[in-house]
Write a protein that binds this DNA or RNA. Structure first.
Lengths: 154, 154
DNA sequence: AGCGTTTGAATAGCATGCTTTGCAATGTTA
DNA sequence: TAACATTGCAAAGCATGCTATTCAAACGCT
């Protein structure tokens, strides 16, 4: 019997790999969000962080890390850039000398409307081909898969 | 009427934002894949690139860029690291003096089995809570959303 | 009180992604 | 064929992730 040179019998089709699709989809979301919120002077990770801070100000870095599920070092760097860009202020925590509280600037508050509109537009563009029922199922499936991987991490 | 300080009436719930969930899910996939293929000396983007090259060798950088949907500069950097790590060789293209062909090394060929097994294990862990029908629907939904965003880019 | 442990952040170093820019090899066209 | 345009890659610069390390503040226990 003849075999083609590269047929090792263990094809791994990227088009049917959840991880591959998830990566590609997330990159497309990020590109689109960048295109839409970039003109406001925001980057995607900054927008994600602002989402938490618009809901509640004065959090510590540790709290942001827990809510956004990124590493502490990643958050520290993102906050440094946001401080540089005049979006937040870091103030010493009144009860804990190791910690700081993160406060929004007026500029950051003013961006809530335009930025959330831009993000909604991106979501709408991505989900355009789906029916309302499919959208709900899709969000639910992503949430379950995400939860499975989080559980597996500990 | 009274309003809480931060209720601007435009809540954007991250738990119901497709983009937010996609980003989080992709980060969890990347962490898991890193954990599983890292010991083989591979990084996630290198694995993604190898997926194409295991199927077909001798492609140009331009062809890889088209198949993986990343920017040319991103691919150039990834290939430089793969060359440094002894996974590929860059050889001048016989017909086009500007281009090069990318060839796998024996080391890269030997990694196909273990690496695809590791990636399959990651996919399995992520999709564990889903039924076979749900998995199929999930992949199909991701493909449709991805296609919608790609279409929108041009 | 004193000492070891834990905890909150910062820093360094690296991988991946992007945009922008530059350059040499090819193609095209007047 | 000379001039212009296109194309394939590389390099610079930056944002976001990660791991590992370090440091000071806070805690806990004897």
């Amino acid at each position: 019997m003849l075999f083609k040179r590269y047929d090792h019998g263990m094809s791994f089709e990227k088009s049917t790999s959840a991880g591959y699709l998830a990566n590609h989809m997330a990159r497309l979301f990020a590109r689109g969000l960048q295109r839409r919120v970039g003109p406001l002077g925001l980057a995607p990770a900054q927008f994600m962080t602002l989402l938490e801070l618009w809901a509640e100000d004065g959090l510590t870095q540790k709290e942001l890390v827990a809510r956004l599920d990124v590493e502490q070092a990643t958050m520290a760097n993102t906050l440094t850039r946001m401080e540089r860009d005049g979006l937040i202020l870091r103030r010493p925590h009144p009860q804990d000398g190791r910690a700081q509280q993160i406060w929004l600037t007026d500029r950051a508050r003013a961006l809530q409307g335009p930025a959330t509109e831009a993000a909604s537009a991106q979501n709408e563009a991505a989900l355009a081909p789906l029916t309302p029922e499919e959208r709900a199922r899709f969000l639910s499936l992503m949430a379950r898969v995400t939860a499975a991987m989080r559980d597996e991490e500990d």
